[in-house]
Design a protein around this nucleic acid. Sequence first.
DNA 1: CGCCGAGTTGAACTGAATCAAGAAACGTGG
DNA 2: CCACGTTTCTTGATTCAGTTCAACTCGGCG
Lengths: 193, 193
Amino acid sequence: MFEQLFHSINEKIQITGEDLGEIKQFFVSRKLRKRQFLLQEGDVCKYTAFVEKGSLRSYSIDEKGNEHILQFALEGWWISDQYSLFTGEPSSYNIDAIEDSDLLLITHASFESMMNKIPRMEKYFRLLLQNNMIALHRRLVASLSLSAEEKYTNMVNAYPNIIQRVPQHMIASYLGITPETLSRIRKQMSSVK
Amino acid sequence: MFEQLFHSINEKIQITGEDLGEIKQFFVSRKLRKRQFLLQEGDVCKYTAFVEKGSLRSYSIDEKGNEHILQFALEGWWISDQYSLFTGEPSSYNIDAIEDSDLLLITHASFESMMNKIPRMEKYFRLLLQNNMIALHRRLVASLSLSAEEKYTNMVNAYPNIIQRVPQHMIASYLGITPETLSRIRKQMSSVK
DNA sequence: CGCCGAGTTGAACTGAATCAAGAAACGTGG
DNA sequence: CCACGTTTCTTGATTCAGTTCAACTCGGCG
């Protein structure tokens, strides 16, 4: 159950087997069926989720009813609404499962206890956040400066695994383009190729 | 010299005066004239900068020669290219001063020493990054879902101080719209008012 | 078998970009 | 402190990438 998580931690910091054992206590596991919600807009986000298996997405819905996908999370990724989690304010995002998934959940309170008990974990999360920031900056620059086609080829190169596992209209939403445009781009790319 | 930095730290974590004294040693101070570079594309980013006074920006330049502003940093903000700093790879960003500025600089090595010597600072940076992530997510959603006008009013509400101190074409670049479009939006807003 | 969500295709429309030219503000050196 | 060059901002005309709306196809699954 904890393979992916332990792998992720070991990748970033030095940690003893004892500490890893300790860590288990702070989490609860949960299975989520495809299309099932982990968080719905208006609710307070209670957990940060780590994906052991499957895939989730977080997204917001604008006034016109359009979904905008913020993040995909496959195996080994974390997902939550940090803002809602920290402040206790109702979330403006939804998180649901794209495929049947196995998660490890940790509450804000457990998270803080874990940090106090195993201070070494501060570094793990700091590094995690740092990498996330870098990726998010890249995505932002892409969204500001690239054409629809460039955004897509960019994504294919950066996350080929996501492209394969996630429905096309979600990719479009993630890139901030319409499903129609994405369909046309793919058509044109395959004919040129 | 360290007022802004100490204020920022005290805001986020409990820390002793002794530790604050220690912290000074890891930084060097530097003045930057308006338009002067802290980092140029192609160079390796050596420092993370904390702004004590003044304002900087980080931006990339695309194939067509257009600037895309990633971040503004006024007093109390951090700025750097984390990716280049960590990996030692040449940066694809520029960082320069918008106004004459006073900075506190810390190298990657000093940063790591500081973390080892004062582990409490891990939490400060974790919280900082967390807040940054939240803001960046908001900006991304805005850039994906809002019209040019909405993006601008959004920004006016979120960062009125930046609007006042930064040239208009840089705001446009930050929002991912052309200076012409921003000019027209402002005209139209002031007439409707 | 029939239905429904996902993807495709076409045609018309539109928000914002581009190109071009002038006005205003700024700061630098004489 | 003024004059001149350089940025910055404004305004207008045109163009275009991507959206919108609508209809149709396909594949799965209940």
